[in-house]
């Protein structure tokens, strides 16, 4: 491209050809860096909204697997509070999505993280019914367990003729099974481990149990907190 050379030539003096060559090289690298960044920036600009939308849709889809869409009538994604880890005993700040119908609490969905898996953190969605503290559903949303062994807790990795392992949790509560039976079978409890992996199911059973324990104590508080929070958010929006 002649014009690029012409531009580059106009920047440098012709006296010292070695430094001319170096300057040309540096300038052309800067030029190509500028072009690359330009394209990356444009792509980012064009895709940012769509990506945010997709992520919201995916989260909503995951939440709707735990609570049926007709069992609530509020805007689930915006009715979210974050439990600070200092107040809860969970290892991370835990987001909770609160579903209500005609302003009556129906379900709280906890996004719980546990560090007791085989490798790295496991993030779960645990839905707890607000009236009787039974589990409406458990889904694993993020993990780094061994492919082919620990990842059997994913519904997508379950063979079509078998019931996904996480369905075992449906309708369970702290009295069904009894608190001391909230263990995998290997440890004398009621929950299956899967072939070749005990640590992963153990971590998940434990995380679900502590969620239930927390929910039983704090369920009423959560929904009153939510109202408080909602007013704070609307106040912020007014300010903006």
């Amino acid at each position: 491209m002649r014009f690029i050379r012409a531009i580059l030539d106009s920047f440098v003096s012709e006296n010292d050809s070695h430094s001319v060559a170096m300057k040309k090289a540096g300038l052309s690298l800067a030029l190509f860096a500028f072009i690359s960044v330009f394209f990356v920036a444009i792509t980012d600009k064009l895709t940012a909204n769509k990506i945010a939308e997709n992520q919201k849709a995916m989260l909503l889809k995951a939440l709707n697997e735990i609570i049926p869409q007709d069992s609530y009538d509020n805007d689930l994604l915006n009715n979210k509070i974050i439990l600070k880890k200092a107040d809860t005993g969970f290892i991370n700040d835990t987001p909770v999505y609160l579903a209500t119908q005609s302003n009556q609490p129906t379900t709280a969905i906890f996004e719980v993280t546990t560090n007791n898996g085989y490798s790295g953190a496991i993030t779960l969605l645990v839905g707890v019914n607000a009236t009787d503290n039974t589990i409406t559903g458990v889904r694993v949303v993020k993990h780094k367990e061994t492919p082919g062994l620990g990842d059997k807790m994913e519904i997508a990795k379950t063979p079509a003729n078998k019931t996904p392992w996480v369905f075992d949790f449906n309708d369970k509560s702290l009295s069904n099974p009894k608190l001391e039976r909230w263990l995998v079978k290997k440890d004398g409890g009621d929950f299956d481990q899967f072939t070749g992996a005990t640590i992963t199911p153990r971590a998940i059973v434990n995380a679900v149990k502590s969620t239930l324990l927390y929910a039983e104590e704090n369920m009423d508080n959560l929904f009153s907190l939510e109202k408080l929070n909602a007013s704070v958010i609307s106040h912020q929006q007014e300010n903006n």
Binding site: A21, A25, S36, T43
Partner: peptide
Amino acid sequence: WIRKEIRIPYYVLVIASIVTIIDLS
């Protein structure tokens, strides 16, 4: 258009940009 002294950083630039663009798209 690429001078030989800067070809390696240039390749890194191109590959990283392509990967980012593919990832975002």
